[in-house]
Structure formats: C-alpha cells, structure tokens
C-alpha cells in the first residue's frame, strides 16, 4: 500500500487580535493511495488548515507535508501551482466556480491550463458532466444553476483530469440531505472506480457515516482515527 499523503508534526498558528490560535498542533497523519478519509472537528478545529497545507495553498509554520512522494512544504509558488494543477483536485464549500464560464468551460478549465487538446477536453468534460447528472446543463453559467448543480460542476471540475488526490472542504455544507447523499455516492464511486484518494473535511454526520476512515480533530490535533464500515 503506497502513501498518498503524509504529514509529519505539522504546526500552524494564527494570530487573532491579541490571541494566538493553534490551528495545527504537532499533527501527523498518513493517508494511503485510494483512501477515502473524512476529517471532522467542530468549527476552528483545524481541518480546513490541514486541507490547505496538504493542497499547498498554505504553508505550515513547521513540520513536513508529502504528497505523492514529494515534499511540498518547501516548494515555491510556481511549483506548488504545478502540483495542484497535475495532482490535486479541489472541491470548496462555496462551489467557487468561475462565474463568467459555463458549466462545461468550468469543468474544462483545469484541462485547458494543463494543455489538453480541445477534442479530449470536450469528450472528458461531456462524460463527467453526464456522470454527475448534469447532461443538458453544459452551457449554463453558475448563476443559472442551483446550489446542488453548482457543487456537481465543482466536483466534475475537481475529478475530470483524474488527479491522484481530491481535497473537499465542507462539500455538503450548502446542500440538502438528498443532494448531499448523491454527492457522497458520487465520491465513493469515483474513489472505487479510479482509486482516487479523497480527503473530506466536514462536520456533517451523514458524510462522516459515508467513509471507511474517520479522523476526529480538536484544537489542531487528532483525537481519534476510526476505521468504520461506510453506510
């Protein structure tokens, strides 16, 4: 079993007013390739900070972050951008689609930056949009879609170029329970079919029940790491 993500003794402190807040406190974690992991904590528990550190969006104050066998906490901006482009897919809480692009164009965005040919892009984006149930809505812009539809586009964008790792931060926060379940089913399916590693930060119990590994965090530390049978 290979390791997709490895964090060693990560520390990250934020200053809020006069107070220092430890978002990550000597946190270490391994996630194997093809893993389907959920990080849960109350708000401010450090899960988003951990996702940002793993995704190369933010640097820890100390410690090491390894993704796909490469240490990334010491990389420069350009190298990190490259890593995110090739290896990592992001799903954000607030969908974060590009408003001036259609659903299809949003999905093709990463592939276009990667330099994938038009035909291949078109074929892959069509396939993934059908897979996430958005056939017929390809030309709609984000403002013309519901929250659930936008989140599906965000998921399609995150997985379309087959990244090794997908990081999802509160992906169901703005979705109703039915759409949440559908989204988690989609994640599970993609995880099983493509061996994509998923790390999902959430405090949604339905999501937590959906994964085989649940890591509970509190004040920037791991307090429990549970192997469970997904519902």
């Amino acid at each position: 079993m290979t390791i997709a993500v490895k964090c060693i003794e990560l520390c990250k402190t934020y200053r809020q007013g006069d107070t220092d807040i430890k978002a990550l406190d000597h946190l270490s974690i391994d996630v194997e390739t093809g893993g389907f992991v959920c990080l849960s904590s109350p708000s401010g528990g450090g899960k988003t900070t951990l996702l940002n550190a793993i995704g190369g969006l933010d640097k820890p104050d100390s410690g090491e972050v390894w993704v796909s066998g490469q240490r990334i906490d010491q990389l420069g901006k350009a190298a990190l951008a490259d890593l995110r482009l090739r290896e990592i897919g992001f799903v954000f809480q607030a969908y974060n689609l590009i408003p001036v692009l259609s659903a299809r164009e949003n999905v093709e965005f990463v592939m276009q930056v990667q330099g994938v040919s038009t035909d291949e892009r078109r074929q892959k984006s069509q396939a993934i949009l059908e897979e996430v149930g958005l056939k017929g809505l390809e030309d709609r812009r984000p403002a013309q879609m519901s929250g659930g539809q936008q989140q599906r586009v965000a998921v399609a964008r995150a997985v379309v170029s087959r990244p090794a790792l997908v990081l999802a931060d509160e992906p169901t926060a703005n979705l109703d329970s039915k759409t949440s379940d559908a989204l988690m089913d989609l994640f599970s399916e993609l995880n099983e079919r493509h061996q994509t590693t998923f790390i999902i930060a959430t405090h949604d119990r339905r999501v937590m029940a959906h994964v085989p590994r649940l890591i509970k965090m509190l004040d920037g530390r791991i307090v429990d790491d549970i192997a469970q049978t997904p519902v």
Binding site: G55, L57, A81, R86, F90, N96, V110, V113, Q114
Partner: peptide, 16 residues
C-alpha cells in the same frame, strides 16, 4: 480577488 484565489488554487500561475 476571491476568484483569482480560486484559479490559483486550481493551478493557474500568478503570471498568467
């Protein structure tokens, strides 16, 4: 700014 942050997160380099 927020949108630029998203595109950077997706892998677009600042110079682009």
């Amino acid at each position: 700014t927020r949108e630029f942050g998203i595109t950077m997160a997706l892998g677009l380099k600042p110079q682009r």
